[in-house]
Design a binder for these strands. Structure first.
Lengths: 206, 206
DNA sequence: CTTAAGCGGAATGGCGAATTCCGGATAAGG
DNA sequence: CCTTATCCGGAATTCGCCATTCCGCTTAAG
């Protein structure tokens, strides 16, 4: 059932109704509610697992011989797997809901990304001004295409990923490009995201 | 008022309520309805203008001395201006609504894009396997970042555009990348988009 | 002062979706 | 085979959220 939920949210986005989830799981809505007290709880479970899968993928990729290989492999597979799903992106997109999980994302995912990026740089395969925090936005934007169209999107995303990768090599003439987000700004942003927990009493509890 | 509508739809997406639009324009909803008979009509007007602006921008860019300059300038400015807005993207994203306008987009915008791309290729500045139809998806994905965050997004989009542009140069060793959409597929897709006009009688008309 | 046009924004009506709840199905126990 | 405690499916219930409508007030011309 959790698997069905993952697929539905990935395909239809967070607005997918529980009825759709139930149908996909081959059960009735009532049954979904017996397993998860609310839609929020179900989403929580789905994203928890999403993060786990991401960490797992990252760990796997780190075993590749070079940092560059790890980086490219991670990006490629991210676009194919759960990271490319619409639900996760809307999740990151919706500030209110996201606040909760950003800590976990940062704690568990960021160190792995940094390690890979640093390794790739030390190999001279990656331009020095690239940063680990560039990766989530890259995945976010590339997977946008998958959401526009399930059929055309994924190949296109890969096409543009390949173009992008060509741009990631250190240039002989290090023309500076627009700088990435600096850490302070990022911190401020995360903090802002955590602010509004939004009162959500979708139904009375008499 | 149309300007206010553009801004609101750009910022909040197509789901923005007319109340928001009215507030932004500093008027009441009633006044909006006196100018446009329905929300659909307002959207129609907004996108009509969006296309006009796009054509105008493209025409301006064509006057630059090289095709490459025209291409990069167009991409850069698209990300700043209306093409980078959320409303237009949701518009393209929502198949039903889009059908109407695709014809106009293709008729008016595509030829200009093709001309620029061909010129840039003939200058040897652009890899030969790049195509005019790659441009809309590129803008689409880059502007995704602006939608995630109004403050961080635009600079990031430009950062990744610059990386991407580095990847667009013809490579000395022409390693083939994932091919773009072929014309037939694109045609099929457009046709599919035109299919469901969706019956939308949001209110009774007694 | 009268009156008509233009407005703002409260009131209406529907829709879609989360949550609740009940009647029937299933299966263990006697 | 009958009884009864569980477990389900999915219809029914409520909400919240808009698009759209409508009416009383303001404004200013006549």
């Amino acid at each position: 059932m959790l698997t069905a939920a993952e697929q539905v949210f990935a395909a239809r986005g967070l607005d997918a109704s529980l009825e759709e989830v139930a149908a996909a799981a081959g059960v009735g809505v009532g049954t979904v509610y017996r397993r998860f007290p609310s839609k929020a709880a179900l989403l929580e479970a789905v994203f928890e697992r999403g993060i786990d899968l991401g960490v797992e993928l990252l760990t796997e990729c780190r075993e590749l011989p070079t940092g560059w290989a790890a980086l490219t492999e991670y990006l490629r597979r991210s676009l194919l797997e759960q990271s490319g799903d619409r639900g996760l992106h809307e999740f990151l997109y919706l500030a209110e809901a996201a606040g909760l999980h950003f800590d976990r994302l940062r704690t568990r995912v960021e160190p792995l990304l940094t390690a890979i990026v640093e390794q790739a740089k030390s190999e001279g395969a990656l331009r020095p001004d690239f940063r680990a925090t560039d990766i989530p936005p890259l995945i976010l934007m590339l997977s946008r295409l998958s959401h526009t169209d399930r059929v055309l999107g994924p190949p296109l995303a890969h096409r543009y990923l390949e173009l992008l990768l060509k741009g990631l090599a250190p240039s002989p003439d290090p023309v500076p490009i627009t700088p990435p987000i600096d850490d302070d700004t990022l911190e401020t942003w995360f903090t802002a995201l955590r602010r509004p927990p939004r009162t959500t009493p979708p139904h009375r509890t008499p």
